[in-house]
Amino acid sequence: MAQEKINELITAYIDGEITDPTKVNDIKDRIEKDNNLKFDFQVQRLMKSIVADRFKIQPTPKKVRRKVLGKINPSKNFLTAFFSRRLS
């Protein structure tokens, strides 16, 4: 396996995308024995957890939520159409 390919397989291993136990054991073994691969493994795992745990998730602003629902809610649309017809 080329070095670049192994590094990318480490990424897939961290993401739980490698299911073949033989392959998983092979990757674990290589990480254990090779300091460069160990560094790559630690970096990939660290970046994944930083993004997953620390990335700031913002709730949808109430005003935007109201506008979105107002656009699609048929009962609201019906009432808006009804009253605008009555007022015009």
Binding site: Q42, L46, R54, F55
Partner: peptide, 27 residues
């Protein structure tokens, strides 16, 4: 990778010290 930094040291320095905004900006 080839300097004296190891992954665990990086973890301490980046995870603990950077703010959530720093992380959002970097992404």
């Amino acid at each position: 990778k080839y300097s004296s930094i190891d992954g665990l040291q990086l973890e301490k320095e980046l995870y603990d010290k950077l703010s959530d905004d720093d992380i959002s900006d970097a992404l």
